[in-house]
Design a protein around this nucleic acid. Structure first.
Lengths: 102, 102
DNA sequence: TTGACATATGAGTACTTATTCATATAAAAT
DNA sequence: ATTTTATATGAATAAGTACTCATATGTCAA
């Protein structure tokens, strides 16, 4: 295999990782929720009617993948989307899925 | 929960399904391979150095989700991408992943 | 300092899923 | 008709993962 092909396969793996972030119901609802603005952990958990622990676990994955950023404010930790790329990818997928019902 | 919110959650679920298609290494390589044109099953298997069976299983998932279409030609079955939506989503994800190394 | 609150995290479990193996189906070639 | 070739598919297995439960960490208030 050429070096060029190797790089391409690595890129494909990176792309897979990116899409994997968006392919879980809880994570995608977190992303959608943060779309409109920052929220603390408990607010997210309450909004999604999911346990604080489950949300925290998913937030860790989202942090590790640089999808969200966290900032401390007293006892709370406030989460927000990392950048507009995330919004763009969510929106593309959402609009395609809702328009085409793939 | 309002009817409106219920619809939105269904849409999120559809979006999750869509992203799930793209979040497997074998499937994404199939999509990338078909990006340039149609291919028969064995050619795909050979190109990806993956068993015919594994490829066939993934092709079934891709068919079920209307990501690819199949057409018979003698003994062979020729697969191609269903439409340009698929290409667009792949390209968005690929370019983001490669540019940002998220 | 102690207690209450907000969040994080390790371990265990249940569930999903991608592959392999064996085999079925189907078309062409002999 | 039988064999060969191409593809599909059910069952079993192995690996990954999302949740729960219990607990740790960290911050503020009293």
């Amino acid at each position: 295999m050429t070096e060029h092909n190797h790089d391409k396969l690595v890129d494909i793996q990176e792309t897979v990782k990116l899409f994997k972030i968006f392919s879980d119901y809880t994570r995608l609802r977190i992303i959608e929720l943060l779309y409109t603005g920052e929220k603390c952990v408990q607010d997210i958990a309450d909004s999604l009617e999911t346990s604080q622990s489950a949300i925290s676990h998913q937030l860790k994955l989202l942090r590790d993948m640089n999808v969200v950023r966290a900032r401390k404010e007293g006892k709370q930790v406030i989460y927000s989307l990392q950048d507009n790329h995330i919004k763009e990818i969510f929106l593309i997928g959402y609009s395609h899925a809702t328009q085409c019902k793939i």
